[in-house]
């Protein structure tokens, strides 16, 4: 489903977006994600194709706000039945069927406050789907879930959406949820900056800003030294970095090399006389444990942030100043043009 939207207030947005299967729209907070969803649902004044100027109650759109908007005075099944047009007995029967489809048959008589975040979300989903909408809108579907269950809920959500086969647009600032999407789009500066399959968006972001949103933490500034069909060599200060290709990159172009923190491999072994490709000897400049992982910072020869599983470096003495060897797979780095006026802070961390 193609959605085109013109919004003037509360902020100016010009949107042309393709929604297929489970589509996630990423954008920094304040970029207008919620406004766009509200406009599509008819809750903000806008010009939207395909819904035109219809009032919200006449658009076949299911809308789940942040926190899901369940009616606290109604039981789970009554929440679902709210949108159903049927006789009294039929309404309950249909509502229970709908709850069963999202796996909540046993919770029909509970009030929303007694359900967990994930269960509330599924009740809200069942309620929105009861009206058989042509499009489903989810506002930050993971924001009110705690970290532990978030991943499970995202997976379940994605599989429910595929099961019901209703095009779904979820907005979020969480790259994690985009990872289970079919399509990903990025909203920046009032328009869709890039959209495409999740795979393409995660591996080939068009700008530094988009790269940040899809989870790249490291941006190393350099200049293309050599360009060939299957790889590039980028000079970063005194060092050379071999990277994957990017169409249109030419020798001597100033570029940014984007690398994910978790894609950098770490060992404590010293390097022999001839260092292998993209391998650097460095020392730890800072570190912070994060559960089963450790986040490290190094300064020379490249300034990088690294997220490494604890067991991978079990033997290594870990403290500031300890020597370390890094390897970056050329396929895990992505070269971007430096002209990214939208994000002036891209160079430094």
């Amino acid at each position: 489903m193609r959605i085109q939207c013109q919004i003037k207030r509360p902020l100016v947005l010009t949107i042309d977006l393709e929604v297929q299967g489970f589509t996630v729209l990423l954008g920094p907070s304040g970029s207008g994600k919620t406004t766009l969803l509200r406009a599509i649902a008819g809750l903000e004044h806008s010009q939207c194709i395909p819904f035109g100027n219809l009032p919200p109650q006449r658009r076949s759109v299911g809308y789940l706000p942040q926190g899901y908007g369940l009616f606290p005075h109604l039981r789970a099944w009554q929440n679902v039945a709210f949108a159903l047009r049927a006789s009294r007995q039929n309404r309950k029967k249909l509502a229970l069927e709908q709850l069963a489809r999202v796996g909540l048959d046993g919770f029909a008589d509970q009030f929303p406050a007694t359900l967990s975040g994930g269960q509330q979300q599924r009740v809200a989903l069942a309620r929105a789907l009861a009206r058989q909408p042509k499009l489903l809108l989810l506002d930050e579907p993971t924001s009110s879930l705690d970290r532990l269950i978030r991943d499970t809920v995202i997976t379940e959500l994605a599989s429910l959406i595929h099961e019901f086969q209703i095009p779904t647009l979820a907005v979020s600032h969480d790259p994690q949820i985009a990872a289970s999407a079919d399509r990903v789009a990025v909203l920046a500066d009032g328009k869709i900056a890039q959209q495409g399959t999740a795979e393409k968006m995660f591996t080939e972001p068009a700008t530094i800003q988009i790269a940040r949103l899809v989870g790249f933490q490291n941006f190393v500034s350099g200049q293309i030294e050599k360009s060939s069909n299957d790889h590039l060599v980028v000079r970063v200060g005194e060092t050379f970095l071999r990277t994957g290709t990017n169409m249109g990159a030419r020798a001597h172009d100033p570029v940014m090399v984007a690398i994910r923190a978790e894609d950098i491999r770490v060992t404590d072994r010293d390097i022999t006389d001839k260092p292998p490709l993209n391998t650097f000897r460095t020392e730890i400049a800072g570190l912070r444990p994060e559960g089963s992982k450790i986040r490290l910072w190094v300064e020379h020869p490249l300034s990088l942030e690294i997220l490494v599983p604890r067991r991978q470096i079990k033997e290594a003495p870990l403290s500031v100043g300890c020597p370390l060897t890094l390897t970056i797979d050329p396929r895990d780095s992505w070269v971007l043009p430096t002209q990214d006026h939208s994000d002036g802070n891209a160079l430094g961390r």
Partner: peptide, 25 residues
């Protein structure tokens, strides 16, 4: 207000929203 808006998106008229959501709450 969000609850009234959700009721609208569920196909209720503003009057029905008032009766079935706003008044009880």
């Amino acid at each position: 207000k969000e609850l009234e808006e959700v009721a609208l998106t569920l196909g209720k008229s503003p009057w029905q929203c008032f009766i079935s959501v706003t008044l009880p709450l």
